[in-house]
């Protein structure tokens, strides 16, 4: 007996929404493979609670594993734990959503299991054939993956969220397993960037700033009020991160986060290929830039050639008028 296993992401005691996109990708994969059952695995603190939540989705069975050695995530301990679980219950494919958690875990796990791995899948063509971006999204490659099991990370924006199921799935606690590492690999602390704003990868609206903001002060005093007015998450171009205007966690692009909100407002962003790769699937794109030749205008639905330091405050005023009307 084999099957398809979704590796859920336990983020500080809650399931990341990307996990539900991974469930949908796994359902798609099962269909292509001619199978019906998809399983899931949740690990870490509160795994059993999260497993019950995940069991509301169309899964055959949800496994959960809680033990002190994996209370906090490390790639090393998680790889051992998952490998031990798979010894008793093998799967043909493991699927996870591309997040720093899965990007970190899957390569080590793939090698530990002697399998193969493909990342950032946009489309499942066959059980061993996929479409994925390369060269910062300038190229879409069709790739073939050999190896057993197959470890697959999917781009969350390329798959819908799985719908909830009629009937709840069975929840099965597994383990504990013997996990011993011959070296030091310890979680020390996690410092969450606290924000009242929606999460970048989950937001319906995103306001992003680029090099045109000129300074960290320019970034904050311009982008934040606009994001607040729109109830939007804040993003940034790599150039803005590089210039130290904002944290790397804000970065939208091939080497940062990939987003596809209903509304994406690019302020002072020229539109380098690697940035476009991270936001071009947004439903509506607005660009504000004083350079009318900026490549961002080629893909923006609405482009405004203007000095952003004048245009953005004006925009906030207009938006407030619309809101109160």
């Amino acid at each position: 007996m084999a099957g398809i296993l979704v590796v859920a992401e336990n983020y500080e005691g809650r399931l990341r929404s990307a996990t539900f996109h991974a469930v949908q990708a796994a359902l798609d994969y099962a269909k292509v493979k001619g199978e019906s059952d998809v399983f899931a695995l949740v690990l870490g603190t509160d795994a059993s609670k999260l497993a019950r939540e995940l069991a509301l989705y169309p899964l055959a069975e949800v496994f959960c594993l809680e033990q002190p050695e994996i209370a906090h995530y490390t790639a090393e301990a998680y790889s051992e734990a998952i490998s031990k679980f798979l010894e008793s219950r093998p799967f043909d494919a493991l699927i996870g959503a591309s997040s720093t958690f899965v990007k970190d875990l899957f390569p080590r796990l793939a090698e530990r299991l002697g399998g193969g791995m493909v990342n950032e899948v946009l489309e499942i063509l066959a059980p061993d054939r996929f479409k994925r971006p390369m060269f910062a999204g300038s190229v879409i490659a069709t790739v073939r993956l050999e190896g057993d099991p197959k470890l697959i990370t999917i781009r969350p924006t390329a798959f819908d969220t799985a719908p909830k199921a009629q009937e709840g799935a069975k929840v099965t606690p597994v383990g504990p397993f013997a996990i011993s590492l011959p070296f030091t690999a310890e979680f020390v602390q996690f410092e969450e960037v606290k924000s009242e704003r929606p999460k970048l990868t989950e937001a319906k609206r995103v306001v992003s700033g680029g090099r045109g903001l000129k300074s960290a002060e320019g970034f904050h005093s311009t982008i934040e009020p606009l994001a607040d007015t729109l109830g939007a998450a804040i993003g940034a171009s790599r150039a803005a991160v590089d210039s130290g205007f904002c944290p790397n966690d804000y970065q939208v692009g091939q080497t940062g986060k990939v987003v596809a909100p209903d509304l994406y407002v690019a302020v002072g962003i020229s539109g380098a290929i690697q940035h476009l790769a991270g936001m071009k699937d947004s439903k509506v794109i607005v660009a504000v830039n004083k350079d009318e030749e900026a490549p961002i205008f080629e893909i923006a639905d609405y482009g405004l050639v203007a000095d952003l330091f004048k245009a953005v405050p004006e925009m906030i005023g207009e938006l407030k008028k619309v809101k109160s009307a």
Partner: peptide, 18 residues
């Protein structure tokens, strides 16, 4: 294990207006 079979350029997003 991982082999590139073919490459293509992605569909271009249509721009709107200024």
């Amino acid at each position: 294990k991982l082999r590139v079979e073919s490459l293509e350029e992605p569909p271009k997003r249509q721009g709107g207006r200024k």
